Simulated scan of single mutants.
Amino acid sequence: MNKKALQLPVQTITLVVGFMVWVILSGLISYIKTDIELTGNQLTLVTAVPVILGSILRVPIGYWTNRYGARKVSLISFIVLLFPIFYISYADSLFDLLFGGLFIGISGAIFSAGVTALPKYFPKERHGFVNGVYGMGNIGTAITTFSVPVLANMFGWRTSVQLFAILILGVLILNFFLGDKKEPKVLTPLTEQIKLVYKNTKLWFLSLFYFLTFGCFVAFTVYLPNFLVSNFGLDTVDAGVRTAGFIALATFLRPVGGCLGDKFNSFKILMVVFTGLTLSGIVLAFNPSLMLYTVGCLSIAICAGIGNGTIFKLVPLYFSKEAGIVNGIVSAMGGLGGFFPPIILSILYNVTGHYAIGYMALSQVALASLIIVVGMYYSEKINKMNEYKRNQSNKKVI
């Protein structure tokens, strides 16, 4: 089989494993805190810190993928990941967890490699679907969240961490033999690409949208396992299963969002998404029962999943030549969107005794995004109308 045809499954499997590694600490935090004494704020910081490097590195990884190819970037990234895996398995202090967790973030940054490389192999009218299928690699977070409590009960949390090295070696072999060595390269210097895009308001609007949709996905992924245990008294396995359900729903709806973006106006889809997130944030702000909290979380999963797929339909549409750097910036903002909310929620809870202000802030950011999307939609309509009038005027002149 032609290697070009294999790149979608190869990159998707790579992302699955990358995201499995990315959330090791949040999945095991209930077990880690029995060995290493941590305060509530420290627990939140440990689970959130992998998001930092996983976000910041998305920009250079997107650029390096355009320059050197996804195969080479993935091989180097997963070789480096072996170090924090074994470092964390021997951790005995807060510093060890933070230091190892920071470098675990590389596994989350690998998202930029596939999302930059894959559109090179498909026509524009299929980019939404392709990026949606690739984005299903997010299911790796659900696999880890569901499986590591079971593994930790059987082998202990330290051995459970080390088992992920087997998966990393598997990805290395996969990319070495099946990765595309002849991937088309883009050699435009990084600074030149940034100059071409940084003044474009669409870049920053898309970044805000992904900050919200993917940020919700990441934030709830890392926060729910410990929150469900501490706030609702669930056991660790039950909390893991519920979190995995949230992740799976958001993940499987991502290609749906991509397909909807291919077939319909993406701005209309985003209007529905941000309306749903606004209402869901309000529901969660009222400190509901477990039943209503579950409904609110599942609503967020649905909106975030569809929104994630739709947004990455728009990136190659507006930025074809600078897709690497733009994918990196937009996805980095999405990652950062998952870093701050858990920390802010934890601080607000310590100050006020509840999470209402944090969830209401989520709803207001969603409302602001809704207003921006409506503005972009009507701006596009006006531009098309003006272009049509100019074309008709030119025909009359001729």
Rank of each mutant, 00 (worst) to 15 (best):
G100W: 04
F246G: 00
P9A: 09
V241T: 02
T243P: 00
S147L: 11
T221V: 13
G276S: 08
T294V: 04
L234D: 00
A304P: 02
Q392W: 15
L260W: 01
N175P: 11
Q392R: 12
G307I: 08
L6T: 10
Y293C: 09
G281W: 06
I311C: 04
V186I: 11
T352Y: 15
A244C: 02
V148G: 06
N2Q: 12
T65K: 07
V23I: 15
R254I: 04
V59S: 07
I106C: 12
L98E: 09
C216R: 06
D96A: 15
T191S: 13
S147G: 07
F146M: 08
I88V: 09
G309R: 10
Y134V: 12
I52L: 15
F95E: 07
F122E: 08
I347N: 05
G375Y: 14
I302S: 09
V115S: 10
F274Q: 01
M271R: 09
T251E: 01
F95V: 14
G108Q: 07
A301S: 11
P149M: 01
F164H: 04
G18C: 02
L196D: 13
M385E: 11
S26E: 06
D262V: 04
A239V: 00
S93A: 06
G257P: 09
F286D: 06
T116I: 01
L196S: 15
V21E: 02
G358V: 06
M333W: 12
I36H: 02
Y198D: 11
V10R: 05
G170A: 11
Q392S: 13
T47E: 03
I194Q: 04
F111H: 03
A244S: 08
Q162F: 04
F264V: 07
F19P: 04
I329N: 03
K395V: 13
M360F: 15
F176V: 13
F83A: 14
Y68E: 02
L290C: 02
V161T: 09
G328Y: 00
E125D: 11
Y293N: 13
G101M: 02
N350D: 14
I302H: 04
I311S: 04
T12G: 10
F177T: 13
A239C: 01
A239M: 00
L284Q: 05
N200A: 03
G69I: 09
S30N: 11
V46A: 06
S55R: 11
P255V: 12
K313P: 00
T14N: 14
F214D: 02
L38R: 03
V330M: 07
P255N: 03
F177W: 11
V374H: 12
G69W: 02
L8P: 06
